[in-house]
């Protein structure tokens, strides 16, 4: 009888999926604990009142002191704990750059492998509702340049849950970028506590033969919309979400580009020195002979994110600009 079986999935929002991953991993492993500013209150919801479910001692509200709690997380990680810290807005990672770059990312290498650093830094990034320049930036490209950091960019609730569980179990420092505009996106999320999404495995959201659209984080759903509108014009686009930038699933990306011969990269971060720049360099060096034309990068303008809703919308890519780029790429603009 179907109704006797426990449901295999649950309809959850992105923030609820993050919360479920945290709770499951904390129940599974006593060394996992959370730190961050106002996380029991939790602006976006993932950790709201979680201390009531997992215990006061495991969800620690810190002073407003990013350097101290990220530094403390490094100290705890190298001495046997698995801290998951939240930077309230990804932009605030600039306040604790030493702890992330000089300490978390380098300490294993510098000590000749004497320590593991099983640390997760959750950081909501991206534009949402006039948050302006210091609460909107996408920081992932900046950190791709730093060896020693793994980077997750989940674009939906299923990946948010599965990737976060993998990140917590991973023995290396992981930056986990949640996109603020996705927190209320919802989907059927697997309930089996064994469910994870491995780091370094891209997802092909739509298959196609004319052009590859490589999109990350908040831009993935726009890329899928763009692909749907391109289909109506007879252009068949393949949409790839790498899900993690480090490690990067180069095999899936290169296989797609070898098939389509064309590539558009899409991100909400700035154009210059962005994720797309690295992907373009990779593809042009590894699949040059398969490319039928130049790679096109779609990204935010090279400027601080503005406050005005009109200006903010003009700053970021959207389904229309992605579709236009793809048409240009295939020579049908």
């Amino acid at each position: 009888m179907a109704e006797d079986k426990a449901p295999e999935t649950q309809f959850l929002t992105y923030f609820e999926a993050v919360r479920q991953a945290l709770k499951e991993e904390m129940e599974l492993d006593p060394s996992v604990f959370l730190m961050g500013e106002d996380i029991r209150y939790s602006i976006f919801g993932p950790t709201k009142d979680l201390h009531l479910e997992v215990g006061e001692g495991r969800v620690l509200d810190t002073p407003i002191t990013e350097s101290a709690f990220v530094g403390a997380a490094v100290g705890a990680a190298i001495t046997g704990m698995r801290p998951v810290v939240e930077i309230m807005f990804a932009d605030f990672m600039t306040v604790c750059m030493d702890q992330i770059i000089n300490q978390a990312a380098k300490i294993r290498f510098m000590t000749g492998g004497q320590v593991k650093v099983p640390l997760v830094i959750r950081a909501p990034g991206g534009m949402l509702s006039s948050s302006a320049a210091q609460h909107s930036q996408c920081m992932e490209a900046l950190f791709m340049h730093i060896p020693g950091l793994k980077i997750c960019v989940p674009a939906g609730p299923v990946d948010a849950k599965g990737l976060l569980k993998s990140a917590i179990r991973d023995d290396d420092p992981v930056l986990f970028f949640e996109h603020k505009a996705l927190y209320f996106a919802s989907d059927e999320v697997p309930l089996d506590p064994r469910f994870t999404v491995p780091l370094g495995q891209a997802s092909v959201l739509r298959e196609g033969g004319d052009v590859t659209i490589f999109a990350i984080s908040g831009m993935v759903s726009s890329a899928v919309s763009a692909a749907n509108s391109l289909a109506r014009d007879g252009i068949s686009a393949e949409v790839i979400d790498p899900r993690t930038l480090v490690p990067l699933d180069t095999d899936t990306l290169l296989a797609s580009v070898r098939k389509t011969g064309r590539l558009v990269t899409v991100e909400e971060g700035c154009l210059t020195g962005g994720v797309g720049a690295e992907i373009t360099a990779l593809v042009t060096s590894e699949a040059w002979s398969d490319l039928k034309g130049p790679v096109i990068r779609v990204a935010a303008k090279d400027q601080p994110v503005p406050f005005s809703p009109v200006l903010e919308a003009a700053c970021a890519p959207n389904a229309q600009t992605i579709a236009a780029a793809a048409r240009e790429c295939v020579g049908k603009n």
Binding site: G71, G75, G80, Q99, T111
Partner: peptide, 28 residues
């Protein structure tokens, strides 16, 4: 650094250890 004797690391950044040590203490 010699983790086996409890030495969690010399550091090239002046003042870096001041936030790492509380983390080791919290871990304990």
């Amino acid at each position: 650094t010699s983790v086996e004797v409890g030495g969690l690391g010399a550091n090239g950044i002046v003042g870096a250890g001041l936030v790492i040590a509380p983390g080791a203490a919290l871990s304990a």
